[in-house]
Design a protein around this nucleic acid. Sequence first.
DNA 1: CTATCATGTAACATAATAAGTTACATAAAA
DNA 2: TTTTATGTAACTTATTATGTTACATGATAG
Lengths: 166, 166
Amino acid sequence: MLGLREILADTMKNDQRLWRTLHVLIHMNQHQTPLTSQAIGQMLNTHPVVVRRTLAGLRKQNLIQAEKGHGGGWKLLLPLEQISLREVYAALGEPPLWVLSPVTEPRGCLVEKAVNQALDEVLQQARDWVLERFSHLTVAQIERDFQALLPFSERHCTGSHDNPST
Amino acid sequence: MLGLREILADTMKNDQRLWRTLHVLIHMNQHQTPLTSQAIGQMLNTHPVVVRRTLAGLRKQNLIQAEKGHGGGWKLLLPLEQISLREVYAALGEPPLWVLSPVTEPRGCLVEKAVNQALDEVLQQARDWVLERFSHLTVAQIERDFQALLPFSERHCTGSHDNPST
DNA sequence: CTATCATGTAACATAATAAGTTACATAAAA
DNA sequence: TTTTATGTAACTTATTATGTTACATGATAG
């Protein structure tokens, strides 16, 4: 995989696992045949090993399956209607959402304690709100959003990575 | 500053600027004399230069002031009632709140576009909600929370770093 | 005036983590 | 048996807040 970073000098740092996984799930749903990590890596502009690592959690939750050998690759075990963003997030190991520190060890200072309580309350509620939204948002819904973006003539075609690329 | 990290093996990575700054503002309000970066560093268990760096934004926004020389240090320019968490956050340069990627460059894939739109919508709204809460939460309110944590006998004393330490 | 104390800031080192990469083992199909 | 694919450990890279050192500037005490 030759110097992707030189070509696309993205920010390239933050956690890209969630959007990458959603992206892949939808493409998997639009393919009849299994998708190899190699092919997925090209879609996501990343290394096949990163793909396997990222999807491992979903495999362990039986949301998807990977088969070895000729004709192998990744495929869905559930319809996208039955996969919410909450479940994807859980399958990824519920990685942190906030950059802000989850607050350090209490060290006896009551000012620190009051500050932490105030911040925790806001951030916890925001997290709960996000997860609630995730619970009610299926990958199928995002797939429908994608289809609405298609020109009418392609509305019922297989996908987008086959032609417009990426 | 000898090996603080060995003593407190915190996670020590995430953005601690917001809670540290709030912590400091309240302590500044409880002191008659200016607080030196050295003293603040001991409160926050960090290096004085980190303190100066973190507070620089607040100084530039005229929320606080720093004086050099003997008897110098940091002091408030506004009552805590007039400083909301939103303003502190702004003075810190509005650092990112989310770990999740702000989404990469669009590369033409409509699936990616739909995924990004869906995620952006949720995360943006959550961010707006947090900032709205920050707007209506003053540092003075957190200071009152702190005072409510004090034992009754100390309810009107100066602070906490003078005795219980940290 | 000068010695001391304090901030201001550049420059570099450290730590944590997702991402990127290499290497090799395992399994399935041709 | 060869080829294709995943599974995974181990290592490297990139990014960013933090930690640290060094030095310049300014203010006060004597």
